[in-house]
């Protein structure tokens, strides 16, 4: 097989991280609880995956206040969008390669 494994970023090895990126790819911004509901994971688990993606520079945080309650929203950075698109393309190529 001549598929370049390099196009698979190691940040995307976890399915939860892929899920976070997928949800943020089609939404401008999502808050923590909404992400948690989509992914069906615990607070700590989600927080650690979010931190990892933040460290890669793939997602960023916007903090604001709703009344007096802090509200943290996450969005995908341009870099994250590029990495996600590349990953998706690589996956599609791989699957096409397999089926041919």
């Amino acid at each position: 097989m001549k598929i370049s494994i390099n196009s698979f970023h190691k940040a995307f090895e976890s399915r939860i991280r892929l899920g976070i990126m997928s949800a943020l790819a089609v939404n401008d911004m999502l808050d923590f609880n909404t992400l948690k509901e989509y992914l069906d994971v615990t607070d700590g688990n989600l927080a650690s995956h979010i931190k990892a993606l933040e460290k890669e520079g793939f997602i960023d945080v916007k903090k604001s206040f709703v009344g007096k309650k802090p509200n943290t929203k996450y969005f995908m950075t341009n870099e994250g969008k590029k990495a996600f698109d590349n990953h998706l393309k690589a996956l599609e190529n791989l699957i096409r390669g397999v089926s041919e």
Binding site: E13, R15, S22, N27, L30, Y38, L88, I95
Partner: peptide, 21 residues
């Protein structure tokens, strides 16, 4: 990962993109 894993990855990505939008 095995090939099946990648196929499942992409299926789950699609489903998440649809479910969340």
């Amino acid at each position: 990962k095995a090939e099946q894993d990648y196929i499942r990855d992409i299926a789950e990505m699609r489903s998440m993109m649809e479910r969340s939008s």
